[in-house]
Design a protein around this nucleic acid. Sequence first.
DNA 1: TAGTGGCCTG
Length: 652
Amino acid sequence: MVFKPLKYIAHNSLSFTSIFYRCKSMKEFKQAHAQLIIKGLPHPPSSLRPIISFSALHPSGDIAYALLIIFRTSTPPTAFLFNTVIRGLARTRHSDSPRNSVLVFYRMVEFDLAPNHFTFTFLFQACANSMAFNLGQQFHCMVIKKSWVIDGFIRNSIIQFYSVCRKLGDAQRVFDESGELDVVSWNSLINGYVKNGDISEALGMFGKMPERNVASWNCLIGGLVRFDRLDDAHRFFVNMPERNLVSWVVMIAGYAQNGMPMEALALFREMQLLDQEPNAAILVSVLSACSQLGALDHGKWVYSYIIKNFIKIDLILSAALIDMYAKCGSINMAIQVFSSSLEKDVSAYTAAISGLAINGRSEEALRLFEQMKGEGITPDSVSYIAVLCACSHMGWVKKGFCYFNSMLDEHGIKPELDHYACMVDLLGRAGMLEEAERFIASMPINPDNVIWGALLGACRTHGNAEMGQRVGNLLIESDQCHDGRYIILSNIYAESNKGDDAEEVRRTMRRRRIKRVPGCSSIEVDGVVHEFVAGDRSHDKTEEIYSVWQEMVREIKNFGYMAETRGVLFDVEEEEKEAVIGYHSEKLALAFGFICTEPGSMLRIVKNIRICNDCHSAIKLVSMVFNRKIAVRDRKRFHHFEGGSCSCMDYW
DNA sequence: TAGTGGCCTG
């Protein structure tokens, strides 16, 4: 190991103290400390303080080292030093931390050092951070029994502790019994109600607060976001007297995590216009919004912002970047970010594996999965979703089952509903419908509608009307509000020439007032995301879009394009059916892309539902005839069209 | 992000 030489040579303990304060990492720090020891210099209290503070509190610190110094040096320890170690343990959200905090606390007592206000605040924090209810309760009893004066900090730590442990009755009692409450007491309790699922109580308390600070508003906004009340959250956000970085994080992350990526980006833009510097947490949410939208230009901008501003790419940010590039269809860039990360954890690997899988590079995905295991990184339940997804996209049934079985056998990971859904998808796509149904029957947990939905989709793909009808009706009755299942069932009927049954399903849908979520495609041009629905005429360039597409159709018809009208329900002439599917949203987005971009450049389209057969074959031909690379991301995966073929090899 | 410290919001 190579150590950088010390910049300053110290000759007495006091000058060492100033060196300790300048250290940037634990490695550097230990090197300086070693010099002090080698020189045989003493550890006066003034030099012990920075030694313990650094080792116990610095992000690269080493709490065991701090304890070793306390116990091994001849200088008698002080309550401050013990408090610092307890504080360090309380902050680390590690499962051992409360137990270790208590052990350190007992050693402190053994040294005849009396705990003080700081000690208890840190101990309650440790218990809260690790949800150690019994332990925290014992400390609460101890404080009362010893008639310890409970100051504002201790009281608030106790309220916070009970709130975090979801013991709202206890938290409320401490709150009610205290004569002197401050804004932090209110915030802790409000947050307790939010985390406990009681948003109305939280709102009520917020209304009654004698004074509020920015954290009070943030607590409430965070609560509303948790309850999917994004509009209410935004109203509070707009009206709050002042905002801090956390306010922006709460709101932007709220949008990004609730499927409102456009709103997340709009708010991020507002933040920039106000010259507010984003932090890594905000950039992670912005990247997630870019992933959802497939907005590669926005994502690239975030990446260059990170580089330009020397923002540290930690494990979370690195996984977010990999995910963004992969979900925007730029898989090579995703792999580049992955390869250049110095540190890789299971999330980074999983983002890369899943990225390769959805981009049709399943072999590499599985190779990377094996490499990850080879590096000694244990896969988690999410990695297995990515792996099963890779198998499913290629129809690798046998391999899929091998991995599925290895989850429990090799890593003790119990398959969850998502994994079973992947397996049903794998069997269903491969046309093994009977096997898929038997697999569902053999599941040790109750199958949910996602699983039956996967089977229903497969019934349509493989034209099994009998099973489709059975599964479709079961699904529709168990969840009457899901529009997609009605559509698939009616399509199954339509495709097996049962027009009356198909129409009946549509009638039921209308009777139950089920609103159909429209198929919607977006394309990003010059950093602006343009959205289209089927038959959309709302765009400024509508006339041009339609005429360009008609021209393109004429062209590809010369190369054998025939409109695939099998799935179109309406009882109309063939020509009209062509018109219905002729303006699917992805086709409009594609035509718009042709208008606005240079010939030969790549086009990226994102669709909210699965691409239909007709669009798939039309775009294949467009890629060949017009010599364009076109990437279409549908609900499940990417289709990379080039030279007349698709990366999915027509298996999707 | 550590300097005799502590409670609330991500």
